[in-house]
Design a protein around this nucleic acid. Structure first.
Length: 287
DNA sequence: CTTGTAAGAGTAATGAGTGA
DNA sequence: TCACTCATTACTCTTACAAG
């Protein structure tokens, strides 16, 4: 089997095939998507007597547009108040008390915003930039599940959340597993329901996945704990890390993941989506 | 330039509240 | 008490900032 480190020299052609957008191709879509929200916002700015009233009116709008209007409120009137904070309707009056002295005056906002007939394309693009946050990670798991089921449908089942959903907590999924380790999926042998692979999936766009429990040391702990369990239970349980995206090329990421695979001594595998057909074989799953 | 930490944002899941 | 709706939380990745 080829190791993750062997791919280093040809890494650029293995990191991902999830597509991203080019600028400015999405401009038109951004404007058309956010025009209704902007128009609504402009209306509210002119119908409210002051900035406090504007916030109250926004909080009274229906749920679908409320968050987007709050984002605009933050941009134009109150950069101090995060959208997370504003989301809570019941805190509205407290927020007004605490922050309204720093709200921009509504007259000034009126003089600075665009006309309703020609909404501001820049702010639309700013909002659009965040629209697909987190989506790449969902696409990753969705793709993986689909590929796995097509390839191994007759022999193995895979369990775990597609797209959004809670992680699997191993202590709940496996008998006598004591530590509450969160995992993304588990692969079982169909014939006798033996768990064979514990999986973790992550998409890295342009920053390494060096975050909290996903740090290398955290990953090592996972391998250690799971290997120990496999030994006690006498089952060929292994660990699979699906990692994908341009972030893999940054800094020491590739080396870190190669080391991780070595650390597992065959009980751990690191794979991008493109490596799946070459690396994730029945032989390995059963080994 | 690299690495660690914190915070922002969207959506599904969950929880709370309300009206019948 | 039940069903339904809406708000909040939990989970995910991305971005910003700061320190090494």
């Amino acid at each position: 089997m080829e190791e993750f480190s062997d791919y280093r020299s040809k890494a650029t052609s293995y990191i991902t095939f999830i597509d991203s957008e080019y600028y400015p191709d999405s401009l038109h879509e951004a404007v058309s998507l956010y025009t209704p929200v902007l128009e609504k916002f402009y209306d509210l700015v002119f119908s409210s007597t002051n900035s406090q009233e504007l916030l109250r009116s926004i909080q009274a709008t229906k749920q679908e547009e409320r968050i987007q209007l709050l984002r605009l409120f933050r941009k134009y009137i109150s950069p101090d108040t995060s959208v997370e904070m504003l989301k809570k309707k019941k805190d509205t009056e407290t927020i007004i008390e605490a922050f309204s002295s720093r709200f921009r005056r509504i007259e000034e906002v009126r003089s600075k915003i665009y006309k309703k007939e020609s909404p501001d394309p820049t702010i639309a693009t700013l909002l659009y930039e965040y629209k697909d946050r987190g989506k790449k990670g969902y696409e990753l798991t969705e793709y993986f599940f689909k590929w796995f089921e097509e390839t191994f449908e007759s022999e193995y089942t895979i369990n775990g959340p597609r797209r959004a959903g809670k992680d699997l907590i191993l202590s709940k999924e496996l008998d006598d597993f004591t530590e509450s380790v969160p995992a993304d999926f588990i692969i079982y042998r169909k014939s006798d329901n033996t768990p064979l692979v514990i999986g973790f999936a992550r998409y890295d766009s342009d920053r390494g996945g060096a975050q909290e429990d996903d740090r290398t040391s955290g990953n090592r702990d996972k391998i250690t704990i799971i290997s120990k369990y496999a030994l006690i239970k006498h089952i060929p349980l292994k660990v699979l890390f699906i990692n994908d995206g341009p972030g893999l090329l940054l800094g020491s990421m590739w080396r870190d993941y190669s080391d991780l695979e070595d650390y597992g001594h065959g009980r751990a595998m690191v794979c991008t989506l493109k490596m799946l057909p070459e690396k994730l074989t029945k032989d390995w799953i059963e080994s």
